[in-house]
């Protein structure tokens, strides 16, 4: 089976879902991206990426509890699937391999 392609931004979101574990939902992921990667992203972009990841089977979701700060609306909480974990591992492996192939030349 060919692996589904993992885009750059999708990878970032997927990593954040992994980091936040159980507590991953739209705004939290947005905040995390801002804090860890110093990137300001639109909330709608995060949602779109999460949907795509779910379609590809990299994350799964369930509805969480309602809170007052959300005007009484529930969160959809995302977590990594096994597939998702593997996709991250694989991407990382490929990266590492490629890294080692860069000749050690002093860059000016």
């Amino acid at each position: 089976m060919g692996r589904a392609y993992l885009g750059e931004f999708e990878e970032l979101v997927l990593l954040m879902v992994g980091i936040l574990n159980e507590e991953a939902y739209g705004v939290a992921i947005q905040d995390e991206i801002k804090a860890k990667a110093d990137r300001a992203v639109n909330i709608s972009a995060v949602h779109t990426a999460l949907h795509r990841l779910e379609e590809k089977g990299f994350v799964k979701s369930q509805m969480g509890g309602a809170t007052a700060e959300r005007g009484g609306r529930r969160k959809r909480l995302f977590s990594l699937t096994l597939n998702g974990k593997q996709a991250l591992d694989q991407t990382r492996e490929i990266r590492n391999e490629l890294w080692q192939q860069i000749p050690k030349i002093a860059f000016s």
């Binding site: 739209g26 705004v27 909330i43 949602h47 700060e69 609306r73 529930r74």
Partner: peptide
């Protein structure tokens, strides 16, 4: 629901 929640 999730979108509204996030926006709120």
């Amino acid at each position: 629901e999730e979108i509204e929640g996030d926006l709120y």
